[in-house]
Design a protein around this nucleic acid. Structure first.
Lengths: 212, 212
DNA sequence: TTCACGATACCACTTTAGGGGTATGCGCTC
DNA sequence: GAGCGCATACCCCTAAAGTGGTATCGTGAA
């Protein structure tokens, strides 16, 4: 029986995955937490064979939890379980030490296989992202030739999200508790980084790249 | 026993939710489909009391499935089950006739309550989005039925395409061999028809609707 | 310990968008 | 033939975006 810890902010998803595994599947979700910050204390209390981790979570994201674990010397294999098919997330996860990467639209059989492999400290990649892995490995001859989107900071992406919702600089400033000047500076930097002429093109580009 | 059909492209989520409901919960997911286009044929084969529907799906989105059902005269209460907290999605869902709206980070208890209410053709809204519903109802005296995009003329869609490419009014005027004044008039009319505040929101909305 | 970067903030300025009108000609329909 | 939607075009004006700088502070890397 593989004992797994699930880290996901979506309660429904978590309870769903837990109920999905029957005793004879050989897998048991022994604990679910919606807050990645609790992972170290949980690991000190109970013993698990692997961790199933969502990437996008509000308080601390999956990569952040991986870093937190590493800083505390916690060595438990982690399977990233996410909707993001972007190379950005995959790369970040692998760089930070994830053992595998699977998409949320995987089947139960695929998830079972992934959990088994990761718990044995083998790598697992979902078939859907294999091509991207190859493309990425082929493309890493020239690291500067990355995606323009990768140059954006988290704050800048946050600003982009607000812009897409139709908020103007003043509204964004109030929402983020910063000055309107700062928002305008961010907008300028974003436009330079993405090499776009105006807000319309910025929104188009960002939506195509999945930032919005 | 409430018999539910689940429409979600994320297999894991679907199987998870299905396993979550035990016989004594009074709810059974009798069928899961990852393709919304199959909903009409499924409804003709099996009998269900309600439909649990994800909004963002690749082949046809949740709102599209609702429209498809309506066009075929299929009258089964639908609970939208999604991650999107945006009023835009909520509005579209309600306009197209969804009976309820719940977020994917809801608890099992909340989902159970929602399914029960919707199967009785009562409305259900997740507590987290109640405020947005109120704001919406306050702001909309005139509930416009039908899709806003349908009101756009071909010329207006052409203008929208240019805006999305980052062209300003002057550039659009030159490209279409018309006056800049005319372009500005078009932009104004477009924004009124789509009920958006500015160009950024216009682009976001248009891309979601597939105009761009 | 520098040094780079991100987030913050401000000034001054030009260009563009956005909102209020009004108007004409064309094609279609009732 | 009167009305309607659409594309066209112009006026005036305000608000916002966009461009050119500069600058402080904290953090983390070299």
């Amino acid at each position: 029986m593989i004992r797994a810890l699930l880290v996901d902010d979506h309660q429904l998803f978590g309870e769903g995955v837990r109920s999905m595994f029957k005793p004879n599947d050989g897998i048991e979700i022994v604990k679910i937490t919606t807050n990645g910050n609790n992972v170290p204390s949980i690991l000190s209390e109970i013993e698990v064979d692997m961790i199933l981790m969502d990437i996008s979570m509000p308080l601390i994201d999956g990569v952040g939890v991986l870093e937190l674990m590493k800083s505390k010397g916690l060595d438990v294999p982690v399977l990233m379980l996410t909707m993001h098919q972007d190379m950005k997330y995959i790369r970040k996860s692998l760089e930070t030490g994830a053992q595998g990467y699977i998409l949320k639209d995987a089947s139960k059989a695929e998830l079972t296989e992934a959990i088994e492999k990761v718990s044995r400290r083998e790598n697992y990649f979902h078939p859907k992202i294999n091509n991207q892995i190859f493309d990425y490995l082929r493309g890493t001859k020239n690291p500067s030739q990355g995606d323009l989107v990768d140059q954006l900071s988290d704050r800048e992406k946050e600003i982009i999200g607000c812009i897409g919702k139709g908020m103007n600089s003043k509204a964004i400033a109030e929402a983020l508790f910063i000055s309107e000047h700062t928002v305008k500076t961010h907008r300028r930097n974003i436009m330079h980084k993405l090499a776009v002429k105006n807000t319309a093109e910025l929104v188009t580009y960002s939506m195509e790249k999945g930032i919005i």
